[in-house]
């Protein structure tokens, strides 16, 4: 265990799971969208829904969507900042089937029209898990550089991604593969030890059968 998970993080209170973790879910959601958020539907579940109000969970998620990190003084003022930036926010209840008690489902639309749906879970301390992207199961923390590739479920795409990473001297820490159905849409989540150079990511975007490439440099 990292001693700075014991002493730290520096964060805005009152709760590492309901506030700091919620900021991180919003932050990663916004990064995964890849552009400033225009519209956000924020659906809460479990303890987030039950006690979120008093823990500033809603303000925290909005702060994260605005690109703030858990130690940002402006978190408690995030609703006003969102209004100034013309970000439309709607809250509701997430209907999940036995979800993690601290879950938030984010439906985001960016200023260029990109859309993404992200299910985040706050799993203790300020650590989080991204459990779904666009309805497909995933499992990553966002703590290291993370590459997310949406592709057709066809032979060869995993090797294209890993070859690119090998070529750029990027070591893979973990790799997960998910698909909606055989031959349908697939998602690859690759957590790396090093940052992936921009040209590698650009190259991937143009490979046939690869539908979407999202890169997140890490919290």
């Amino acid at each position: 265990m990292d001693i700075f998970d014991i002493v730290g993080p520096i964060m805005v209170g009152p709760s590492s799971s309901h506030t700091a973790g919620a900021v991180r879910i919003g932050y990663i959601g916004g990064k995964l969208l890849g552009e400033p958020v225009k519209k956000a539907q924020i659906l809460l579940y479990g303890s987030f829904l039950a006690t979120g109000e008093g823990h500033g969970t809603k303000k925290a998620i909005v702060a994260g969507l605005l690109g703030m990190e858990p130690d940002d003084y402006r978190i408690s003022d995030s609703f006003n900042i969102a209004k100034e930036k013309d970000m439309k926010i709607e809250f509701g209840e997430a209907k999940l089937n036995e979800g993690h008690p601290n879950s938030a489902l984010l439906r985001l639309e960016g200023i260029n029209g990109n859309k993404i749906e992200v299910l985040g879970q706050s799993i203790g301390g300020s650590r989080i898990n991204i459990a779904q992207i666009d309805g497909i199961d995933t499992n990553f923390s966002g703590e290291c550089p993370t590459l997310i590739v949406h592709n057709m479920d066809q032979p060869g795409h995993v090797s294209e991604v890993t070859s690119m990473l090998a070529h750029k001297s990027v070591n893979i820490a973990t790799m997960q593969l998910y698909r909606s159905a055989k031959g349908g849409n697939a998602v690859m989540v690759v957590e790396c030890d090093q940052q992936i150079p921009k040209e590698g990511i650009e190259w991937l975007k143009h490979v046939e059968g690869i539908l979407k490439v999202t890169y997140f440099a890490g919290i």
């Binding site: 520096i10 709760s15 506030t19």
Partner: peptide, 14 residues
């Protein structure tokens, strides 16, 4: 902490 000020979790915010 309860008033959403910046603190250091050690080991937790509470």
């Amino acid at each position: 902490n309860a008033c959403m000020r910046r603190i250091v979790a050690a080991p937790t915010a509470g």
